[in-house]
Design a protein around this nucleic acid. Structure first.
Lengths: 205, 205
DNA sequence: CATCCTATAGACAGATCGGTCTACTCGATC
DNA sequence: GATCGAGTAGACCGATCTGTCTATAGGATG
């Protein structure tokens, strides 16, 4: 792995688990085994390294997330439910420290800050993925359904982070099934595909 | 206002809007107009000042929040809906920088850190308030209803913070009414009080 | 008036911060 | 073999960080 790659990977991990302002450049350099001059040959500043790390996290996170959802369920409706299962696995992991994109906005509160903007862009793309699933599922209002589910997903993620209780994902999933059922009943052209929602309102695991 | 009070108030505001690690002691001292020795006479360290500021924010936040909810609606059911209205007012304000308790967990990720624990305690108390309302509303499962609503509230708060779109509160409120209707239908002893939920599924403002 | 407590102002220490600079090594290419 | 670019090691700079120290002022209480 090239020095540049090692820097981005190491920065992404350290920024995520310790916070951006709490991690110094020297720590990243030591962990990555890279000289300081090499860092500044590739990036203008610490903030640019942070931006690169965020872009990397965005790619990886969305790819992994989408792949996990699609691996877990086959139909669009089932995948909308599987969103919560994937989040559950995530928040239960020992490497879970909340959503990295929410976390950076806590340290870069200004909306027009490039770091904050990168986090907002991630949320926009993640929402678009859910909306695509919602459209495939035949929801009358895919955008509204996606936004409601996204609210539930974000909510259980932060509550799991703050309280340490992954059970909030179960509560979110139950509410999600309610929302899903309603959204598909309202104008779903394929009532048969909604059958999965009539299943018992329990987390799948 | 005593120097101690000025320190706590100033620290609460600065930590909230700029982040804990991004704000230095000297900045707080200058803003509060307090000498450095006075700070260390009242608090052992910066972290203890942060803890005091968090406790202050917890008290004020929950008091203001509960008062706003009770001012806005009279019945328990209506108050459960008004939770979202209060959050909407909050996130639309220019002094909104996300939930301060979520924000500190981004900078103090360790669950056993006192700062993180203070944030978790705040969430526990805030949830208890909603659960009390849910019980008064006659929900068959007050705990489950409260947790579902809390997930929605947290979710729309963080999405408003990251994306800058307060409309996520509307989506959350719509989903909340769905959850509320279902929770009251399941075992509500007072079906009449659930009439408010049969109202049009639109944000009240 | 004397004493005591609180608070102030500001110097100071030791560490760490982001960032720059020089000197050197290594490997590939011409 | 000479050259060049990328990377390394580490000194170095000015700024900033948390926290301690001294000296002094003012107000309340004895």
């Amino acid at each position: 792995m090239s020095p540049r790659e090692r820097l981005i990977e190491t920065a992404a991990e350290l920024f995520y688990r310790r916070g951006c302002h709490a991690v110094g450049i020297d720590t990243i350099l030591a962990e990555a085994g890279v000289a300081k001059m090499t860092l500044y040959r590739h990036f203008r500043s610490k903030d640019e390294l942070l931006l690169a790390a965020l872009r990397r996290m965005d790619e990886r996170f969305r790819n992994d997330f989408m792949a996990a959802v699609e691996r877990r369920a086959a139909t669009p409706v089932a995948r909308l439910d599987a969103l919560f299962d994937v989040v559950r696995d995530w928040v239960r992991g020992k490497d879970f420290f909340g959503c990295p994109f929410i976390n950076v906005t806590a340290e870069f509160a200004a909306q027009d800050d490039p770091v904050h903007a990168a986090a907002a862009e991630h949320k926009r793309l993640a929402l678009a993925f859910i909306e695509r699933l919602a459209a495939e599922a035949g929801a009358a209002d895919p955008r509204g359904l996606a936004r409601a589910l996204k609210v539930l997903l974000e909510g259980c993620t932060v509550l799991a982070q703050v309280t340490g209780q992954s059970e909030f994902v179960d509560d979110a999933q139950l509410a999600g099934r309610l929302v899903l059922r309603e959204a598909l009943r309202a104008g779903g052209p394929a009532p048969a595909s909604g059958a999965e929602c009539a299943a018992p309102l329990r987390p799948t695991r």
